Amino acid sequence: DVEPGKFYKGVVTRIEKYGAFINLNEQVRGLLRPRDMISLRLENLNVGDEIIVQAIDVRPEKREIDFKYIP
């Protein structure tokens, strides 16, 4: 289970104008929005990159997770 405030290693699987989709595993995916990136820009991410993200909002009923990147 993903818990708000905890850090997780994930893989960038898709990049859109509104953010990057990060997979923690095959069943768990969330969104990293540009506003939640500190010292990292969306255009510097590539599909396949491994990054450490912090879960900031977890909505299991909608199967949605918002992430934050903190270097």
Rank of each mutant, 00 (worst) to 15 (best):
M37Y: 02
R63E: 11
I56H: 08
D1K: 15
G5S: 06
L40G: 08
E16T: 14
M37A: 06
R29F: 12
E16I: 08
A55E: 03
R33V: 05
K62E: 09
K17T: 13
R59L: 05
F21P: 00
Y69C: 04
V53N: 00
N44M: 14
A20E: 01
L31D: 01
L40T: 08
K68Q: 11
R59D: 08
I38K: 09
I15L: 11
N23C: 09
R63T: 08
K62C: 08
V12G: 00
D66I: 10
L32S: 01
D36A: 05
L24K: 00
I51H: 00
I65M: 05
F67V: 04
E26R: 15
P71K: 07
Q27R: 15
R35Y: 08
E64C: 06
E3H: 14
D57F: 12
P34Y: 07
K68F: 09
R41L: 13
V47W: 05
V53H: 00
D1C: 11
N25K: 06
L32T: 01
Q54H: 05
E43A: 12
Y18M: 05
V28G: 04
G48Q: 04
V12F: 00
P34I: 11
P60L: 10
L45D: 00
D57W: 09
F7M: 09
L45A: 01
P71I: 07
R33N: 03
R35I: 09
N23Q: 13
E50W: 15
V58C: 04
G30T: 02
D1I: 15
G19F: 05
E16K: 10
G48E: 03
Y8L: 02
N23V: 09
R29G: 11
V12L: 03
V2H: 04
D36C: 07
L40C: 09
Y69N: 05
Y69A: 05
I38W: 07
I51V: 09
R41T: 15
S39L: 12
L42V: 08
V47Y: 06
E3S: 12
G48M: 06
P60S: 11
L45N: 00
K6D: 05
D1G: 15
L24Q: 00
N46L: 14
R33M: 04
E43S: 13
I22Y: 00
D66S: 10
L45Q: 00
V53F: 02
D57L: 11
A20R: 00
K17I: 13
P71T: 08
D57E: 14
V11W: 15
K17R: 14
Q54K: 10
